[in-house]
Simulated assay, not measured.
Amino acid sequence: MLLLLSPAKSLDYETPVPPALAARATRPLMVDQAAGLIDVLKHFNPAQVSSLMDLSDPLAQLNVARYGAWSRRFTDANSRPAALAFNGDVYEGLQASSFDDEDWAFAQDHVVILSGLYGVLRPLDRLQPYRLEMGTRLPVGTSKDLYGYWGDTLAAYLNQRQARAATPVIVNLASQEYAKAALRKSLKARVVECVFEDHKNGQWKIISFHAKRARGLMARWIIRQRAQSVAALEAFDSEGYAFQPALSEPDRLVFRRQLAD
């Protein structure tokens, strides 16, 4: 069973990485493809990056500098493990900084972070700072955008990771923007979606902030429980969420919790 996560726009390169963990960091698997994108991006000026990605001038300038500094050589000085570098709502729920050695080993074997630049990342894969969302309409060669650039590459990787599994399963905890790049017709695995709803102001609904955090909570729960079956996910109960069998389907698991109004 593999878990898909989205990356985050916010990054943390300030919090120190424990030396023992830095020593276990791994090299990303699709560096050649990432370098191909960098070769395109490094020719963009701040105004072009701002227009392409709808960024403020300071953010555009920051990312132009990042593209210029990006290197095929990944070191402690220019990179850190992806699960510690991303710093958005999902990763607040994941709380990777609290993992022990066994948690990291399980996560490395079961978590796949999708990325517009890197394609796929394992939690311990070294990440150099960047901004490139999967939905960006960046023309590369004959491809009009990143979905075209990555094509079936990500699905093929997931197939390869689960080639020996009798019943391959993907638990999709990624946003639609990123899942769309991996969950293609060529994917052989069963795909299970997790839906997180909160009750607020008299109705049940998906609240973006809470749902993103809940995806991280679910990934963390799976890692800490060493869960390896869809049935096991029904026991997820972090921060008040509970499985709703009457609202769920075999490949769409619904979890709800009551928020204070």
Rank of each mutant, 00 (worst) to 15 (best):
M1H: 12
L5F: 15
S6A: 14
S10H: 08
L11H: 07
D12T: 09
P16R: 01
V17N: 09
A20C: 06
L21S: 03
L21Q: 06
R27Y: 13
P28M: 10
M30Q: 12
M30E: 12
D32S: 15
Q33P: 05
Q33W: 05
A35D: 15
D39Q: 13
N45Q: 14
P46W: 13
A47Q: 15
Q48D: 12
L52W: 07
D57R: 15
A65I: 00
R66M: 00
G68Y: 08
G68V: 04
A69M: 02
W70V: 05
S71D: 09
R72P: 03
R72A: 03
R73S: 03
R73D: 01
R73I: 06
F74S: 04
T75M: 09
T75C: 05
A77P: 00
A77E: 14
A77C: 05
R80P: 02
A85S: 12
F86S: 04
N87A: 14
G88N: 05
Y91Q: 06
E92D: 04
E92Y: 08
G93R: 09
S97V: 05
D100P: 04
D101P: 02
E102S: 12
D103M: 02
W104F: 02
W104S: 11
A105T: 09
F106P: 00
D109Y: 00
I113Y: 07
G116F: 12
G119R: 08
R122Y: 13
Q128Y: 03
Y130A: 01
Y130W: 03
R137V: 04
L138A: 01
P139K: 02
G141E: 01
K144E: 13
L146H: 03
L146Q: 11
Y147Q: 09
G151E: 14
D152N: 14
T153C: 01
L154H: 08
A156E: 15
A165I: 10
V171H: 13
V171D: 07
N172Y: 13
N172R: 08
L173E: 10
A174N: 15
Q176T: 15
A179L: 11
A179V: 07
K180Q: 14
A182K: 06
K188Y: 10
A189C: 15
R190Y: 10
V192F: 14
E193H: 15
E193R: 15
N201A: 11
G202R: 15
G202F: 13
Q203S: 11
W204D: 11
K205M: 14
I207C: 09
S208N: 13
S208G: 07
F209W: 07
F209Q: 10
H210A: 14
H210P: 11
A211K: 08
G216E: 11
A219N: 12
R224A: 11
Q225I: 01
A227I: 06
Q228I: 10
A231S: 07
L233T: 05
L233V: 06
A235N: 08
A235T: 08
D237V: 02
D237K: 00
S238Y: 01
Y241H: 06
F243Y: 15
F243W: 06
F243N: 04
A246V: 02
A246W: 00
L247V: 00
L247W: 03
P250G: 09
D251I: 01
R252Q: 03
F255N: 03
R256D: 01
R256Y: 03
A260K: 04
A260H: 04
A260Y: 01
D261R: 03
